[in-house]
Nucleic acid binder design. Structure first.
Length: 257
DNA sequence: TCATCCCTGTGG
DNA sequence: CCACAGGGATGA
């Protein structure tokens, strides 16, 4: 479930709690293979806490603990175990990080170093965007979801970004005009930073929580995602839902062309 | 670029 | 019962 804004919210909350602290132990409660974990020597100081795309990185001494929450993972901070299916506990002197994961799809790895095939971050320089889009015939919605092309955008924010940019999600990436690419390049960081400011999106049936257990707030600001049949906030035309790149996609058939 | 799978739960 | 859920790897 978590996309870049949710992961960033989680990392920002965990950083002051674990960065610079000594990781005293790792308990694996769900019998699922966690690659490399047997090579982790404890205790190990957390040198740095960061995000790359939708990955959470805890840089240790040595190596890096990588967490990807996939669909239903949560990282919760506390002194006592929270409700839910706890898969992993990272123990510190003053509290613990719990990985709770209903669907057990989350991935945890301990690697000597983080190497990724991820595309550039969407909050950085986007001057490369026109060239990259010109090389692809994928529908722009699917292109935004492809982590090798741009890292961190997921299904909610792909719909929200394209609404903000006024671009039909079906459009082939290479069909966007230079002007449209410019509008898109501004919409991407705008939507994502607003969502970070809102502490992420917690839908009604969503698993996402901040590490404190609090809900996100950006669900109140969504324009199209999950709103099929409801009026477009700009022109009142009913929002439509379609399947693009195998995922539900929401858009305004009037504003997005 | 699509279907399929991973896993579990919920809602129609 | 089937469809679907904010992700992504894989193989055709």
């Amino acid at each position: 479930m978590p996309e870049l804004p949710e992961v960033e919210t989680i990392v920002r909350a965990l950083r002051p709690r674990v960065q610079g602290r000594r990781l005293l132990g790792v308990d694996v409660l769900d019998p699922v293979l966690i690659p490399g974990l047997d090579g982790l020597s404890i205790p190990s100081r957390v040198r740095k806490t960061s995000r790359r795309g939708k990955y959470i990185l805890l840089e240790l001494e040595p190596g890096v603990l990588l967490v990807h929450l996939r669909m239903s993972g949560r990282l919760l901070w506390g002194k006592t175990p929270p409700e839910g299916r706890i898969r992993l506990v990272l123990r510190f002197a003053h509290g613990n990080v719990y990985l709770v994961d209903q669907r057990r799809l989350a991935q945890v790895k301990y690697l000597p170093r983080f190497e990724d095939g991820l595309g550039p971050e969407p909050l950085g320089d986007l001057s490369w965007l026109p060239q990259a889009l010109a090389r692809s015939r994928m529908p722009i919605k699917g292109w935004l979801l492809d982590q090798r092309k741009i890292a961190g955008i997921g299904n909610i924010y792909a719909s929200e970004i394209l609404f903000r940019a006024g671009i039909d999600p079906h459009r082939p990436a290479n069909s966007l005009t230079p002007k449209e690419v410019g509008v898109l390049a501004r919409a991407i960081p705008k939507v994502l930073t607003e969502a970070i400011a809102g502490k992420g999106t917690t839908l009604a049936d969503s698993e996402y929580r901040q590490p404190t257990g609090e809900l996100g707030g950006f669900q109140l600001r969504l324009s199209v995602y999950g709103r099929a049949g409801k009026p477009c906030p700009v022109c009142q035309t009913p929002i439509r839902r379609a399947k693009i790149s195998g995922r539900s996609t929401y858009f305004c058939p009037s504003c997005q062309t």
